[in-house]
Design a protein around this nucleic acid. Structure first.
Lengths: 334, 334
DNA sequence: GATGGTGATGTAATCGATTACATAATCGAG
DNA sequence: CTCGATTATGTAATCGATTACATCACCATC
């Protein structure tokens, strides 16, 4: 494998000159430039990036930590990140924690080890102090999630208000017994959506029934099983607000398997607006998050942190939108 | 940021000894070992992996090139790769080409640049000669796809026979006008599935009608629109075999929008058995690929190539399975 | 007591590129 | 014609770890 020295020898110049040609820095006459390029061509030379990384102490690589890459929501956000990364010549390393919080903390180590220039977390179950300490020293951005009481740069939507919006929509349609399929309570996003749900109930003076709130884990399966549980209640809900679309689809299926109809017997609202939400029948009423844009903004923010540009607005809240479809009845069908 | 020198100084040893402690190689007395560990602890030292990489000329990282990470099929394969990689201390770099063949060739360059120790391609639209030349010099494994007439290590199913199986199932149910929604013709996998479809027709002496074969791109949207086209034919098909589940779902939706019922008016068979295939209504009859296992095997194969172990069976064909559900009628419902 | 083996540690080369600094050549202004 | 600026190129240090090789101490064996 040819190295820069071989190229230098063949072109009859120093390695410094070869490097200058490679990186297009400094002054090189067109003539030597050509000689170097010819040598590169002849030797089929490819610069070894490890040498460069070590010397420059940067890898132009960012790590994205995802809780679950098979979840379409995250892969869409990832796409946004990739788009911006590619445009700026950065590579994206993927860390899939498969919902394991310990793995999450492990990934944090790649920063001091200098393996990447920065990180984006699409999950935030790491101990707050640890995360804060790292964020002080290295470029880190949280997307979708955030950590309470920190000023770690964040891109997300306002989960509380959107959950409130979703719940209010059901109330407006006349529902009073509204259940909530929450996400895991150790992620803030789930707690926020639950809070929004509570706020909506309170605002309309609807009493909270603890039995109507069930903690899931964002999977179809959990949505399905928890809904069976809800339907077995003495006074089952007439509407279900699920913390994501996959659980909402699970809910619909469970209702059907029990002989119920959606939305006639039970109305269902989801969250995220994944592709399947509009395809599934009945199409899901849901909160649309700008997934791609969240990814873009997060990466843009990260780039500014890496480049040491002072970031004025560190906490970005993007707009979301209630998309009314067929799964909750009442509204017009889109 | 502390380096190995700082640790050495503090522990009153040479950097060589620190390295020995870090890597657990060579002989070190328990006493100095402790001193070194204390120094590491005190300085909060993390080894800079770039130095290590350069010296050892390996990164314990593999690159996985995916045509579309938002496609659940690929993310499932990726999971299998990750599982094995993690167990062997390898990191996984993700390259999402977003179906751009040029990007695919670009990714190939990270190998001679020594950025990764090996690559797995879940797509193979690269020029054959180029790919072969690289595969001769570096560890490369193809998964799902393969390149005709090469002996590049590959893990996949037998797409021809499984497509034949799927088509035959429809024939057995009495269908004679069977359409095929193919994938893009520049990927071999699509051509193989088309071939299997043709074989089944030939075997049962059913004439091929060119109008019944439509080239899609594996997306829901293409499945939807091509099916509308099929339904507008003078003699529309009574069954549709789609080259993947997402197009199959698109087909079902199109049939419904035209007032048809599935499977009563038109039977539909998919391919891959993604999660949604069993959830969607009607549940999809489809070819189940062992996605996770494909990933695992591919990574295992790659590891052996990286470690220079002679690989006897370079081309691995895994078993697939026809899963009969509701979308094609006739069979029992699962 | 000489010899050789083993274990613990240190010295310094090395991986491949980048870049601060040095040097040489060229040019233009006064 | 000289001086300083500018341009082109080279020399060598550097990034941080790993490791071949050297050294030294200690012990066992004959």
């Amino acid at each position: 494998m040819a190295s820069i020295k071989d190229v230098a020898k063949r072109a009859n110049v120093s390695t410094a000159t070869v490097s200058r040609v490679l990186r297009n820095t400094g002054n090189v006459t067109e003539e030597t430039r050509q000689r170097v390029l010819e040598a590169i061509e002849a030797l089929n030379y490819q610069p070894n990036v490890l040498g460069r990384y070590l010397r420059r102490m940067e890898t132009e690589t960012v790590l994205v930590v995802v809780p679950d890459i098979t979840n379409p929501f995250f892969s869409k956000v990832l796409r946004g990140i990739e788009a911006v990364a590619l445009k700026h010549g950065y590579q994206v390393l993927l860390g899939d924690t498969q919902n394991d919080a310990r793995l999450e903390e492990q990934y944090l180590n790649v920063l001091p080890q200098r393996q990447v220039d920065g990180m984006i977390f699409l999950t935030a179950r790491i101990r707050k102090e640890l995360m804060e300490e790292m964020a002080r020293q290295f470029p880190i951005v949280l997307a979708c999630e955030y950590l309470e009481g920190t000023d770690i740069p964040t891109v997300s939507i306002d989960n509380i208000s959107s959950a409130r919006k979703a719940t209010e929509h059901l109330i407006r349609l006349g529902h009073r017994r509204i259940a909530h399929l929450s996400g895991p309570m150790d992620v803030i996003l789930s707690r926020d959506r639950l809070r929004g749900y509570y706020q909506a109930l309170a605002q309309h003076e609807i009493e909270v029934d603890a039995a109507l709130v069930q903690e899931g884990d964002f999977t179809y399966e959990s949505g399905y099983h928890l809904t069976l549980k809800l339907l077995a209640l003495e006074k089952p809900p007439t509407a279900i607000f699920a913390a994501n679309d996959e659980m909402a689809i699970g809910a619909v299926k469970a209702i059907r398997h029990r002989g119920g109809r959606v939305p006639d017997d039970v109305a269902v609202v989801g969250f995220d607006d994944i592709h399947m939400a509009s395809i599934f029948e009945p199409s899901l009423t849901t909160i649309a998050q700008p997934m791609f844009e969240i990814g873009q903004k997060a990466m843009e923010l990260l780039l500014r942190l890496i480049e040491g540009i002072d970031v004025e607005r560190r906490q970005l809240v993007l707009p979301d939108r209630l998309v009314i479809r067929d799964s909750c009845g009442g509204g017009r069908s889109v």
